[in-house]
Design a protein around this nucleic acid. Structure first.
Lengths: 213, 213
DNA sequence: TATAAAATCCGTGGAAACACCTATTTCCCC
DNA sequence: GGGGAAATAGGTGTTTCCACGGATTTTATA
């Protein structure tokens, strides 16, 4: 088994580090290295690796755009995100754009090799700590959410809940047996208290608070 | 170490099954069993267990409401969700309402015991398969989403993206250098194609497609 | 090149949302 | 018992949204 890998990273240090880490493993060959998205796209025309180690923050293109275009144009290339960004939103962004793995730069050689092997075989590999982080991120929303948003009154919470359940103001008025004006008053309070520009912003905030899936 | 456990489930069969499973483990004592939410709440006034095994579907109250009130009124009681529902939304709902664990009913005795022990110590325990399911649910949205929604045209996708970014129709018109009427036409198409009742519904669908966090 | 799909635009009208303002009643807490 | 927050409701007006028609031009593609 010979795995041809390629790396894109604007830090030469990272590239050297990966080269050093992979040196003792002859079955993984770092066939090419690039320091920008443009250089990579140009290089892919000549030579396609099996696995691409892709950073997110690059000088010209962003890693997310690159992942999208590469997985669309070269579906045979497996992409392993290699970055120091551990925020769940970045993980989601990369995985949804076609990456099969996500690794942090502070990893060790065996893990790097294992991740490359897994990704090469089409199996997902995500840093376990990051998996846990995402999970907690999804499950623990309620903690700093509607209950711990002391700004909102009971009634406002009720109205907000009905709003994200796609009820309009007149419908909410009927449902709560109050006047349309009262509902509108609550809506205004919600917009101000939650610093929302409009309905869309309000819904997004409410969903972040866990009021809807 | 003696762990006092209590179970709420409207199926006597489940209760018997748990009793049988826990019998060989003397350090876990099933101190009380209830078949309804009301009975549980009444029983808690007399006796509080260390760990509560809680089903979601109950005749009177729902497990989610129960989890919320119990974790609020008896914060010392650890709650382990024990149900046959494996949908991520249920897991999120229960965990966000104060459960420390989530177990499926098709589990085996050692796992049940381990879960109770973990939860007793305040450590989270979630069925590994469910963890993975939630993770995939979060990460793989894009797959059957905006790209695989062939219904939407390119322009409609652009407009939808701007909508969830909290732009209003006039703002979108300015940004895309098109008429307000055109934007509104795209909005109507979006509402129809995505079967959305209104803006709120549209935003929710868009977020499920991964267009925003 | 013919045809379909996409993208553009308009008129009209009503519903809903949002922004100001004020005001009363209720209820909790010091 | 008085102060303050919450909930209630109204007036007025503007903006945005949404739905019902329609139309033309551009683009892709078979």
């Amino acid at each position: 088994m010979l795995i041809r890998a390629t790396i894109v990273d604007n830090h030469p240090m990272t590239i050297h580090g990966v080269q050093t880490m992979l040196a003792p493993y002859p079955h993984i060959q770092l066939s090419a290295t690039y320091t920008s998205g443009k250089a990579l796209l140009a290089g892919l025309e000549r030579e396609q690796p099996d696995v691409l180690l892709l950073d997110i923050m690059l000088p010209d293109t962003s890693g997310k755009e690159l992942a999208e275009t590469i997985s669309a144009n070269w579906p045979g290339i497996r992409i392993l995100a290699l970055t120091s960004l551990d925020a769940p939103s970045h993980v989601k962004g990369m995985m949804r754009r076609g990456c099969t793995g996500y690794l942090l730069k502070d990893t060790d050689a065996p893990t790097l090799v294992y991740a490359i092997e897994q990704v090469y075989e089409g199996k997902e590999f995500i840093e376990p700590s990051i998996k846990e982080q995402i999970l907690q991120n999804v499950l623990r929303l309620k903690k700093n959410s509607i209950d711990n948003t002391p700004k909102l009154t009971q009634r406002e919470k009720e109205v907000l809940t009905l709003i994200v359940q796609e009820y309009t103001s007149p419908e909410i008025a009927d449902k709560l047996f109050i006047s349309l004006r009262t509902v509108e008053a609550h809506r205004c309070s919600l917009l101000q208290k939650l610093d929302a520009k409009n309905l869309v912003a309000l819904v997004k905030i409410a969903m972040q608070m866990g009021l809807a899936e």
